[in-house]
Amino acid sequence: MQKFERQQGLVAPLDRANVDTDLIIPKQFLKSIQRSGFGVNLFDELRYLDEGQPGQDCSQRPLNPDFVLNQTRYQGASVLLARRNFGCGSSREHAPWALADFGFRVVIAPSFADIFYNNAFKNGILLITLPEEAVDRLFREVETNEGYRLDVDLEQQRITTPSGEILEFAVDAFRKHCLLEGLDDIGITLQDEDAIRAFEKKHRADRPWLFRQAG
């Protein structure tokens, strides 16, 4: 996993609640057996005016000029500002793969769906939950200030706005550590191999039917 570096990120606002995983990456793109290449289809149905197909050359497709990520001022954004319950719906990891592939390193919202939250951190994306009033204020500031950037410092767990305002955020220690170090979960878990084997042995003795093959 890519290490999370401190960001001086350009912010793009996506002003709608309950952005679901179908909206983040529509199902036709889930047929890929790769982990990469989803960025061109991020928010496909909002971003383009036609129906997207896997393997298409997206540079030839008609863009929706009203969609925020198509606007010149937001090109190169690495921080996505969003509304509540971002990432609801399916467990498809293609959603964070698409966000990361597009270039987003941070998403800020009042709340996130649980499965998406897990998936994002496993792909080097920092999700920051802030109170609704703070998110509202950021939306207003982004919209009125072209080139609006936020300094996102995971180490210190704080965001600094262009005016110098500091917004602190919470993140659990393990996720923070993995993100900063770019660590692979599996390797960490396998350090506990003996504990897993010991548990498994007892579990099998206590409840052998959980280990049964089809009869």
Partner: peptide
């Protein structure tokens, strides 16, 4: 019972465990 992402699918295959809260 709950849904997991693909990284967790790999994690379960490799370790028979999940990291959870």
């Amino acid at each position: 019972a709950h849904g997991i992402g693909t990284s967790e699918v790999e994690h379960v295959l490799a370790t028979q465990c999940l990291l959870a809260q």
